[in-house]
Amino acid sequence: MSAPLLEIEDLTVQYRTNQGMLTAVSGASFTIERGEFFGLAGESGSGKSTLAKAIIGGLDDNGEVTSGTLRYRGEEIQDLAETELNERLRWKEISWIPQSSMNSLDPLQRVSEQAAEIGRTHTDLSDEAIREKLKEMFDVVGLQQSRIDDYPHQFSGGMQQRAIIALALFLEPSLVIADEPTTALDVIMQDQIFKYLDRTKTSTDTSLLLITHDISVIFESCDSVAIMHASQVTERGSAQAVHDNPRHPYAFMFKEAFPDIREPKRELEVIDGYPPELMGDVDICSFADRCPWAVDECRQSAPSLDPVGDDDATHAAACVRADEAYELYEAEGTDPDGTGRTIAPEEDD
């Protein structure tokens, strides 16, 4: 059996700051197979972008993988040198659509020139073939094909975002890491792009690591999901398992916080407080201060990501009360003392 496309094992990433080592990712583990769409969800600041940057070797200067391994097609890549990452992995194998990618185009080069440079470095394609591929992608992202020769400033912000997406996809990479790729785009455009991604999944076994705060997109478009809270993976597994049988309080409260237009009057969950900033090793459940079911044990060590349920082999949760929390939630909600955490729209009258 061949190795999975990407394996992340017990990964910890820290940033050096004036206050000390800030832990942005702590002991994260998950695997992405070929042709798998994997969604990474969580509030802002939970460490999603840091994890993505760690995979592609693009951490900020003060950031560092301090423990754990990253394997791409079985090979450890966390210590690869910049040049090697660039030559062997970036663009053709793994492409990255950075968050707020608006400014990641080179302002001095036409988009087609930027594509040509990437294509020449990473493939044997002729310049003509590169142009053709880029044109096809422009069509997908709703840009006129012949505008591939425009300079970035000739595009509006939303168009630049789409041009970046076209650049990230035109070489048909094996793994696309997309960090909030469509948050700046409208839902119809988002759907157009996902329609294309769906096609590449079937036709070329493309894998996707989709980073987003929007769990709706993940539940409907991804095969698997991991939900992060303040550096920790709280729960992961197949989208169906996590949706149908959630175990970690953050995971199910987060899920219940999302509106669903099929039920416009459903009460939305509110998660009080906000995630802590964590200095040094994380040796608690990072959700403890916000969790309605927290007990002393939650602050004694970081709960390990253990298998839960019998629905799916990859389904795991990092909660000491994973066995009972969801039943408690269903039985009495998050609000046994009646302080009102949920919102209900008015009933019809």
Binding site: I188, Q190, D191, D214, I215, S216, F219, E220, R262
Partner: peptide, 24 residues
């Protein structure tokens, strides 16, 4: 109709059709 039907539905069991729209 295009707008409403492009809104993601947070449910892996629901098979929403992708949009028929193209362009911008």
């Amino acid at each position: 109709e295009a707008l409403v039907s492009a809104i993601p539905v947070p449910d892996p069991h629901y098979n929403r059709e992708r949009t028929e729209m193209s362009g911008a």
